[in-house]
């Protein structure tokens, strides 16, 4: 079997797991299903020859599951269900219409793109063939990340920084109590 067949099998597995994650009543099994999606993505990255992304994904996925289980441990285990009201019907129909419109335009957009695996290399050609010479890094993913596209990477670091500050600001209840008194 070629790479595409394996990818299709893994993607179908991931879609099934995503549906399971939405419909599971036990939130712990929902978290586990999300973990299965993440590890499926790891396999996809490995098949597409991106070990860098695979390492990041497998490590970050594990940490995410640990944190989510820790949160779940402190909150409710089972999801509460509400009966369907009129507002839900409007919401669902709006979502379906939006999905249909997006699908229509995606089909038209995919027809214009190159076939899978044959990209047009305009700018990335310079990166691929000159990165080792220009940066001296044999892993030229890092060369691109910290030389040609360093500003993007700094933006990522800023996003992480903001995440930590946001978590600290939301979770510190002690400070809030002091300001109320």
């Amino acid at each position: 079997m070629d790479t595409e067949t394996y990818l299709i099998i893994i993607l179908v597995f991931m879609i099934v797991m995503a549906i399971a994650a939405i419909h599971a009543r036990d939130l712990l099994s929902s978290v586990i299903a999300q973990g299965a999606i993440g590890y499926g993505l790891v396999l996809c990255f490995l098949l597409l020859k991106a070990p860098d992304l695979a390492i990041v994904q497998i490590v970050a996925e594990t940490i995410t599951i640990i944190i989510m289980v820790a949160v779940l441990h402190d909150s409710t285990r089972f999801e509460t269900r509400f009966p369907i009201c009129r507002r839900d019907i409007v919401n669902y129909s709006a979502a379906f219409v939006l999905a249909g419109v997006l699908l229509y335009y995606f089909v038209h957009a995919i027809a214009v793109l190159n076939p899978f695996g044959e990209h047009t290399l305009r700018m990335s050609e310079a990166y691929v063939y000159q990165a080792i010479e220009a940066t001296g890094a044999t892993n030229f993913v890092k060369g691109v990340l910290w030389d040609f596209r360093a500003l993007d990477t700094m933006g990522e670091a800023a996003v992480l920084f903001t995440t930590a500050i946001g978590v600290l600001a939301i979770l510190r209840l002690k400070g809030k109590k002091q300001s109320n008194q």
């Binding site: 070990p51 860098d52 390492i55 990041v56 490590v59 970050a60 940490i63 001296g136 890094a137 044999t138 892993n139 993913v141 890092k142 060369g143 990340l145």
Partner: peptide, 14 residues
């Protein structure tokens, strides 16, 4: 990170 696959993000998470 600059020689083999890996780097700051994945190593930091480890």
């Amino acid at each position: 990170g600059h020689v083999l696959p890996g780097g700051g993000f994945s190593g930091g998470v480890l």
